[in-house]
Design a protein around this nucleic acid. Structure first.
Length: 301
DNA sequence: GTTGAGCGTT
């Protein structure tokens, strides 16, 4: 009568897995749990109402809605709390996968004591992770200019180092992305994503709730009147970048995530954090070029 | 030989 297998997935946008049904058309919860450890039930989206519906569960036996499993994809239920955990793992691993490709970049170290040497720098920063480059900038007489550069092997290390202040040889120092245009090895890391194919019933709060699973959301903007897209800003640019290119399912709707291209009148995106070496108003820092000749600024190293 | 917010001689 019924199919031999029903299609089950951990999330609506996941590829389903086929789970065997019993002779009488029911499905054992244990069969589901065998593939999805911790599962406590199933739900599905009712094609009529577009609402999620629970699957009847009696003593470990799942019963087909309307006595027919049909070709719907059933979504695994987890005990409260457990589910969040799974989502967090998914989101975190998604970010992590892309993190693997995140290049590190040179960081400027500001506020160094005059006496600090490159060896000192290396010794200090090695406690955070593998250091692949250190520099202390000096004048021709050999005196330190009080700043330097450092580069780490791993992006995680870099992130950690930027996030805190550093006591080096008795002075507090800061590590930042340099403003210089010498090496813009970070193309453009926006913390804001463009969410395409939105429907009008998606509220800012719902979007926030949904995207929270990937990381801290600092802003949600839905242009009005309705234009079928929205902007979501994360605290962490890595999270935003990791999501770009993805098709995500929100309220049963497939939305497309892409980079929020800063519009021509890039007012805040660039000003926000003066990083990645782009001065909106052109060079402002003292650039004394004797001949007045134009130096090409965009360089790929 | 000095200094203390910043931005990298090759």
């Amino acid at each position: 009568m019924s199919e031999l297998y029903i299609r089950v997935a951990e999330d609506e946008n996941e590829e389903p897995m086929e789970i065997p049904s019993e002779d009488d058309g029911t499905v054992l919860l244990s069969s589901v749990a065998a593939q999805f450890p911790g599962a406590c039930g199933l739900r599905y989206r009712n094609p009529e109402s577009q609402c999620m519906r629970g699957v009847r569960l009696v003593e470990g036996v799942l019963h087909a809605p309307e006595n027919d499993w049909g070709s719907l994809v059933y979504v695994v239920n987890y005990p409260k709390g457990e589910k969040l955990k799974m989502e967090e793992i998914d989101a975190a691993s998604a970010v992590k996968v892309k993190r693997g490709f995140q290049k590190t970049s040179d960081l400027i170290v500001l506020g160094l004591p005059w006496k600090t040497t490159e060896q000192d720098l290396k010794d200090y920063f090695s406690t955070f992770g593998e250091v692949i480059m250190v520099q202390v900038k000096r004048q021709t007489n050999g005196n330190s200019k009080g700043f330097g550069f450092v580069r780490f092997a791993d992006y995680e290390t870099q992130t950690k180092v930027i996030a805190q202040r550093h006591m080096i040889d008795g002075r507090w120092c800061d590590c930042k992305h340099p403003n210089s245009k010498m090496c813009p090895d970070e193309p453009m890391r926006s913390r804001k994503i463009f969410v395409g194919r939105c429907t009008e019933d998606m509220t800012p709060d719902e979007l926030r709730q949904y995207f929270m699973q990937y990381g801290e959301v600092t802003d949600v903007f839905i242009p009005k009147p309705f234009r079928a897209f929205a902007f979501v800003t994360f605290a962490d640019d890595q999270v935003a970048q990791a999501l770009c290119g993805e098709d995500l399912i929100i309220k049963g709707i497939s939305v497309h995530i892409s980079n929020a291209e800063p519009k021509h009148n890039n007012s805040r995106q660039m000003m926000d954090r003066g990083r990645f070496g782009v001065c909106p108003l052109g060079r402002q820092r003292g650039t004394k070029r004797p001949g007045g000749g134009m130096m090409r600024s965009r360089r790929v190293c």
